[in-house]
Structures are given as structure tokens and as C-alpha cells.
Computed example of a mutant assay.
Amino acid sequence: MKKNIIILSIIMVFGCTNKPDNGKLNIVTTTTMITDLVQNIGGDHINVEGLMGSGVDPHLYKASEGDVNKLVHADIIFYNGLHLEGKLVEVFEKMESAHKTPIALSDALDKSTLIGSDYFASNYDPHVWFNIAYFKLFAQKVTSILSEKDPKNAESYKANETKYLEQLDQLETKIKTTIATLPREKRILVTAHDAFNYFGKNYDFDVVGLQGLSTATEAGVQDVQKLSAFIIEKEVKAVFIESSVPKRTIEALQAAVNSKGHAITIGGTLYSDALGNKGSMEGTYIGMFEYNVNTIVNALK
């Protein structure tokens, strides 16, 4: 990280020449969820570069020299905040000292409504995008910032926001209908790490993650044994791997459960900290959410 800070300082002083210059705002985003959101609101009026791609774990992500260059030349930087992008915090703080302020979308949220966490310096669970109401507030924040920076296109940003919020309303209606087909006693979601607490709170699931809230912590043998006992006691039918987390820990859990005479399957791959590939259903926030719900419900029925 010290290397990145040195690079950042040099670029701040001397500048570079590879900044896109087509009259549009140059936006840099961190996670794939935020990239998708900003593209939906900004449309053709902005250039968007996301630092993280499909399957990338934001908890462990480190900025490259190219990333730092993108950040320095951005007109606006949007990130999640709540220490989700923990290893980028030092870079963002350095940029703030140079009078370029990255925007944490989580600042739009009422902190008193968030789920607490001792794993993060913010003391909150940062996986807030699994609350659609919070993601709507993200959309409103993005619209406000884009309109402030580019007032001539404010009406277009507002129209895009209205359309996107309607799509989020439709998403919520659809997933509630799907979840309603799963009896409450079967709503036990076991995954690689605790990314789904907001999902569980909103849709009445018991959520258990093998690695806790942050993938920076490794699951040990005792964690596996404790969770396997819980799975057997609750007669859980399936567990889930995550696209941005190595599957070996869930496979070890499956083996531990099966060795005790309780058959359990891997119910599929969920998208937690990153979206799927571009062009796929899971490659957008809305598609990812619907895909996850369908995968969970079908496996646990």
C-alpha cells in the first residue's frame, strides 16, 4: 500500500495524459454493484470505469498503479464505504488531503438502521446492497451528485433514476413472491461468509456464514465442526458457495456434514460481493438479486 501512496503522490503533482476527454464526466467506481448502478443513472452522458470486475473480492482488493491513475483523473469517485474496500481506504484518505473527495454512497444511509459488526472499522456490516431500500438511496445519491456536477444533463439523470427505481420496485415484488413459496422453517441460508445479513433481515432468513463478515478471516477446523453440528441439528438441505470466495471452505463443510451421516448438497453459487460476467443475468444488480433468490429457494425447498 505504501507503494500505491507514493505513486498517487507523484501523479497528483505531475499529472498524466490518458484522461478520457469527450466532454463527458469521468466516473470511477469500486464494486461491480456500484458500477452497474452508476451506468444506469448516468447513461450515455458519462464515462464509467469500474476498478473491480466479476468475481473480485472487495475486502481484499489492492489498487494497482493503473487504478491509482484512474482515481486521480476521475471527476467523481463512487465507492461503498463502511470499510468494505478496506485496502483502498488509505488511498482515498490521501486523495482527500489533495482536495479530491471520493464519495462513499453509504453516507446516504441512516447508520442507526445498519447491522453492527466488530469485523470492520466502521462497526457496521458493509453489505448494504442486499437491502433494496438502501440501494434506492444509493441511486438517489448518485443522481444528486451527477446533477450537481453536470447540471445541463440533470433532467436526463432524474429520468434515468425514476426508471431505475421503478425497476427496483418490480424486483422487490418478484423476489417476495418467490420467497413466499419457501416455508419459514426452511429459510436457513449457509454461505461462505456473512454477506447476506441484510437479506436475511428483510426476508426472514436465518443467515450463517462460515468465515464471518470479512473474507480476510479464515475459517478454522472448529468453525467447520461447529457449523456442521448446526446444519445437522436444523436439518439444513443445502449450503452455498460464493463467486468471490474460494469454494474450498464450503466443500470442507460439506464433507464434515456428510461424514456424520447427514446428506447435504451444494445448492449453487451465489453472487455476494461481486456481480457475474457482463452479458449474463447475474451481470447486473437486478439480475444478480433475482438469480440469487431463485437459486436459494430452489435448493432449500
Results as ranks from 00 to 15, higher is better:
M33E: 09
K201S: 15
T31N: 08
D194S: 13
V72F: 04
K234H: 07
I11A: 01
L25Y: 08
V89F: 04
V257Y: 06
G53A: 13
Q211Y: 07
G116I: 10
Y285R: 06
I250E: 00
D57S: 07
L182W: 01
G220W: 04
K158D: 08
K158P: 03
V28R: 01
T35V: 04
A274Y: 09
G86W: 01
E96K: 14
D125Y: 00
T162D: 12
L88T: 03
D36T: 09
E242H: 11
Y291E: 05
V207N: 06
V208S: 07
I179W: 02
M288V: 15
V38C: 02
D67E: 12
E49P: 00
L105G: 00
Q225Y: 07
K2C: 08
Q211I: 04
T143H: 03
N26S: 15
I77T: 15
Q140H: 08
Q39L: 12
G42T: 05
Y124S: 03
I7P: 01
K174E: 12
H193N: 13
E96C: 11
N131E: 04
A216K: 12
N294Y: 06
V239L: 13
D36Q: 12
I27A: 03
D67S: 01
A74I: 11
V190S: 06
H83N: 11
G43E: 02
Q39P: 04
N197W: 01
P126A: 10
L189E: 03
I5R: 05
N160I: 14
K3E: 15
A263L: 03
T17A: 07
S64A: 11
N277H: 09
N40H: 13
D169W: 07
K237E: 07
T29D: 07
A180F: 09
E251A: 10
H193T: 15
I5V: 14
E251P: 05
N294A: 13
M288Q: 02
V297T: 15
A63T: 11
I179T: 13
S97I: 13
A192D: 06
S156Y: 11
L300M: 09
I41P: 00
K186L: 12
D273P: 05
M1T: 12
K100D: 02
K19M: 04
K111F: 10
I6S: 15
A180K: 15
V68Q: 07
L105I: 11
F205K: 02
G212R: 02
I231L: 13
K301N: 12
V48M: 08
G268Y: 08
I296Y: 00
G66V: 04
S244N: 10
G15K: 08
A256I: 14
L210A: 00
V257K: 05
E185R: 14
Y119M: 08
H262D: 04
V28N: 01
F14K: 08
S147D: 13
S243N: 09
S117E: 10
N298I: 02
S112C: 01
I11K: 07
Y157H: 06
S156H: 09
M52R: 03
A98G: 05
A274I: 04
G23H: 11
D204R: 06
T113N: 06
